[in-house]
Each structure stands twice: as structure tokens, then as C-alpha cells.
Design a protein around this nucleic acid. Structure first.
Lengths: 222, 222
DNA sequence: ACGCAAACTGATCACAAAGTCAGGATGGTT
DNA sequence: AACCATCCTGACTTTGTGATCAGTTTGCGT
């Protein structure tokens, strides 16, 4: 991967521009400039503007989803709680790269809301994330690290919280700082799983009976 | 309001088109057609396309936020839990009108993420929603209907859940049906407030001491 | 060295869409 | 009736941009 081909440069420029300017803001002349090629070459490699955008989005979604999951998937010594925490971190807009992914993700939401034919794309991405969380939670339950619960439901709720808090931080760190979003999601998940206040320093529940006798916390902390 | 002026028809057409086609998809020729005026008149009433769009969005956001809050605000006999529940219903895309509002809302997210100067607009809308939930929760706590908790934090979490589940249903009823989203948000909130499984048939906590000795539920229901 | 296909370019076309302008209709005031 | 301001229109100009095309360069197989 030392010398990216012109085609790859075009694709990369397209992805960057979609994130920065939005799908509708993409201009092939600008892509050409950014990739240091003539705009005619863009049309040589990609039939039409829409085809280029479709391929760029597909490429980006695929890459983002895989990187997120692959990165956190096979970690030998980590506890289930640790894996969940780092997956949450990798799912919130914690880095510039992830923020870019988020913007594309929101763009997909919007288009899917308007064009039903895009919904399968969005649903598949959701399904992948859901499956990851569901399996991680189920595994933790099976190993006695977490309380008994419905992994599907907890996974859904966690995804919703990630999306909700993620959006909020994306819009402006003023409203909800990233760190607060992180801990809020983690704490809610820890609560669902019967851990303490946090995923990281999780005092494992070991058995549901003990958890069942623990008093409910009166306030979600201050 | 029997005879909407041409200016109003133009504005209404703009709002509708933004929701249907997206901000970038708006064509003033089409707006003119829809409002049964010439496209020159659009430019007569609105300096420029951007000015029209800005006014249309502002109008729509203002209206949506106010309608949502005003509708659920002053209800005489309702319990705090009931008011929360109906506010949740009014905040999820439960009707075609609300779905349209949602699409505009997501569009604002996207733009605010890219253009920091739009963030105050988004943050103000969030602040309004947050304040409503915070106050409603605090009032319920004060009256002993809910458990003691940090209203600010519970409000934030509720908003995050609304956004997260709302998006999910917006994208396709296939993934998460609206009804499941509704109950999921309500159940999570009920849990935070120390109620039973649901907001509607809430068994009031009355005092925090009793709530503190209640066992944590082992599973978020099936 | 030759030939040939793939990669690439500058110039240009075609068209959609925002914005302008000169003037016509309408309704109110004196 | 005469006047004027507001509302409104059809026709036109301008611009930005996606797409095309004729032709040039590059690299590779024989």
C-alpha cells in the first residue's frame, strides 16, 4: 500500500469530502483536485457521480464497522466488562476519525428515513453492532460476570444510549462533554448488568441471588 | 387564518420540501409550483434561497418544539408519570407530523456537526427539552411520586434514549417497532424514578426509604 | 521496436437552477 | 379619477457543475 492508485485517491477524497461537506456538497472537480487528477479521470473510473458516491459510502461504512468490531473483538485477557467498555469508547465519537464516521452515519440515517431502499443498509450495520453487544453480554452472563438479563434488550438499549449521547456530543461539546457521555453509557450498562457504578472497576456479581438482595441505588450519582 | 398569504404558502411549501427532499434538495422552482406562485415571487419575498431556508427551518423548529411542550404542559389532573409518558410519546416519531419534525431534527444535527455556528440553535432546542424533563422529574420527586434522583442526569438519559430509539424506528420499523421504542424509553425512565415496570400504572414510591430497600430487578423484563 | 490496451488530460458541451429586470395587475388613499 | 405602494409575472441572464470526447501518454506483452 505504498503507492495508492489514482482510483484509490479519488475514493479517499470522496469519503473525506462527504464527511466534511455532506453528500450533496460533493463536487467532482474538487475531488479531482484533492486527488491530483483531472476531473475527466474521475468519470473514467466511475460511470457517474452517484456511482462514485455509492461506492465511497459503501467502502467507508464497511471499513468503519469492521475496524470498530475487529479492534475490540479478539482481546485475550480482557474481562467481558472491559471489552464492552472499549467497544463503547470505539462507538462514540471519541477521535477525529470516529467523528468522521459518525457524520457519515448520521447522513445515512437521514437518507434511509427518506428513501426506504436505503434502509437495509442501515439495518445491516445496526444488526452487526447489535449482534456484537448481544454476544458480549450473553457471554458475560454465561460466565457469571454479569447478572441475568435479556441480552437482546440490553444491547438495544445500549445502542440507543450510544446513539443518543453520541449525537449530543457531536453537536457540541458544550451540551454534554464526551467524557460525560462515555460514563453515562457505561454506567447505564453496568446497572443493567448488575455491576457497580462502572464497567471498568466492575465488582463482579458472580451470582444473581447476591445481586437480588442489593439495594437499588437511590440516585444515579451526582 | 382562512386565506394563507402567498408568503405563507411559500414558507409552508419550503418546510414540506425540506422534510421530503432535504435542505439541499429544495428547488425554488418547485416551491413556487407548490405554492402556486411564480418563482420570481419567491425572490421577491425572500432575498435569497438561503434566507428562505433559514426562515423556514427556524419557523419549523420553533413550531415543533412549542407544540410538543405546550401540548403536554398544562394538564390539570394528570400525574407526573402520565405527563412524562405523553411527553415521550410526543417526542418519538409516532405520527406523520412528528416524523417530519424528526427528519428536520436529524438534518439539524448533521449541519450542526459540520458547521459550529449552527450549534447554538441545536443546543437551545435540546436545552428546552431538557428543562421540561428536568422540571417534570423534579416536581415528581418533590411530590414523592418518584424516587430521589438527579433530575438533570435522568433527563439527559431520557433524551438520549428518545433520540437513540427514535432514530432507530425512523430508519425502519423493521429493526425496532415504534411500540417497542415507546415502552423501552418509558421502562428505563420508570426504573430511574423507582417506579415499577411502566410509567402509566406507576406504583408510586411515596418515600425514598422504602425504595432503598427494594431489591434490584434481575432482568429488564423479557 | 512495435502494437495495443489501459490510464489520463484539456477543452468543451449541455443543462439545471439561482437570481434579475422591466413592467403589469391590484387595492387602498386622496 | 388619479396616484401610489405592494404584490406579482414572464422572459432573460448567469453561473456552477456533471458529463463527453478527441486525442495523448504510459506501461506491458511479444
Amino acid at each position: 500500500m505504498s503507492k495508492p492508485t489514482a482510483r484509490e485517491r479519488i475514493l479517499a477524497a470522496a469519503v473525506g469530502q462527504i464527511a466534511r461537506e455532506g453528500i450533496d456538497g460533493v463536487r467532482i472537480a474538487r475531488i479531482a483536485m484533492e486527488a491530483r487528477v483531472s476531473s475527466a479521470l474521475v468519470h473514467y473510473h466511475f460511470e457517474t457521480r452517484d456511482a462514485l458516491l455509492a461506492e465511497a459510502l459503501d467502502y467507508s461504512y464497511q471499513r468503519a464497522g469492521e475496524a470498530r468490531i475487529a479492534g475490540e473483538d479478539e482481546r485475550p485477557g480482557a474481562s467481558h466488562a472491559d471489552r464492552l467498555q472499549s467497544m463503547i469508547d470505539g462507538s462514540l465519537p471519541t477521535t477525529p476519525g470516529l467523528t468522521e464516521d459518525w457524520v457519515l452515519w448520521v447522513e445515512l440515517w437521514l437518507r434511509a428515513a427518506r428513501h426506504p431502499d436505503l434502509r437495509p443498509v442501515a439495518e445491516e450495520l445496526y444488526a452487526r453492532m447489535h449482534a456484537w453487544f448481544r454476544d458480549a453480554i450473553a457471554a458475560g452472563v454465561k460466565d457469571g460476570e454479569f447478572n441475568r438479563c435479556d441480552p437482546d434488550e440490553v444491547a438495544d438499549r445500549t445502542l440507543a444510549l450510544i446513539d443518543g449521547y453520541g449525537i449530543r456530543t457531536l453537536i457540541g461539546d458544550g451540551a454534554i462533554p464526551l467524557e460525560r457521555a462515555r460514563s453515562a453509557v457505561a454506567r447505564a450498562l453496568a446497572q443493567d448488568l448488575g455491576l457497580g457504578e462502572t464497567l471498568q472497576a466492575g465488582e463482579p456479581a458472580r451470582n444473581a441471588a447476591r445481586a437480588a438482595s442489593r439495594p437499588v441505588r437511590t440516585a444515579p450519582s451526582m
